[in-house]
């Protein structure tokens, strides 16, 4: 069996922030009525975290739940466990009208680390990255320049970015461009 390889094979860049392409991450899209007990149980059973509210993200290590829309969650789990997780999800969902599908190989994940992460993201996304407006615990589905992406602050100074695997190269170039030394703006107090 061959090993899974991420889109950019762990590309890294050191600039205003450190940009790292992360190893493959298990991701399951779960769609349905988020108020349904079966759907909540299917998500929390795999992720081992509480159900997030609107635009919330609860993430511990490689596991977590992201609120993507009023009828969609993104459930995170270790890449190697997706098959088992999906089977157990379908069991929990039973006859509920829902959709759960493995999207791990359709995605790329980046991590940005450093004091200037808010500024680097703010250069690329139409999002108010002011520390008073965007706080850890909130996931933002938006665009980075011309492609869809989602990101959240794992903690202050540490951003997780998810995008489609097919545009991983484009997004890496965007992030490294925005993080190139000499491009400091210093607009946010916290960096």
């Amino acid at each position: 069996m061959s090993d899974p390889i991420s889109a950019l094979n762990g590309a890294r860049f050191d600039g205003l922030v450190q940009v790292t392409e992360m190893p493959p991450q298990g991701m399951i899209t779960l769609r349905g009525d988020l108020a349904s007990v079966a759907i909540k149980n299917a998500a929390t059973g795999i992720a081992g975290v509480d159900m997030p509210g609107q635009r919330g993200v609860h993430c511990v290590g490689e596991k977590g739940i992201c609120w993507m829309s009023p009828d969609e969650l993104l459930v995170l789990c270790p890449y190697a466990e997706v098959g088992v997780a999906l089977a157990s999800m379908h069991k929990t969902l039973g006859k509920d009208h829902a959709l759960a599908v493995d999207v791990s190989d359709a995605r790329a994940v980046f991590q940005l680390q450093g004091a200037a992460v808010r500024e680097v993201i703010a250069k690329l996304a139409p999002v108010d990255m002011d520390p008073a407006q965007f706080t850890p615990g909130e996931i933002r589905r938006t665009r980075l320049a011309q492609v869809p992406a989602a990101f959240w602050l794992r903690e202050e100074g540490l951003v997780q970015v998810i995008c489609f695997r097919s545009v991983a190269g484009y997004v890496f170039d965007l992030l490294t461009g925005a993080a190139t030394p000499g491009g400091e703006v210093g607009v946010f107090a916290a960096g």
């Binding site: 609107q54 635009r55 829309s69 009023p70 139409p126 933002r140 589905r141 938006t142 665009r143």
Partner: peptide
Amino acid sequence: PCCGIAAEETE
């Protein structure tokens, strides 16, 4: 009204 984001035109 679906996600509560004050989205600007390009989004």
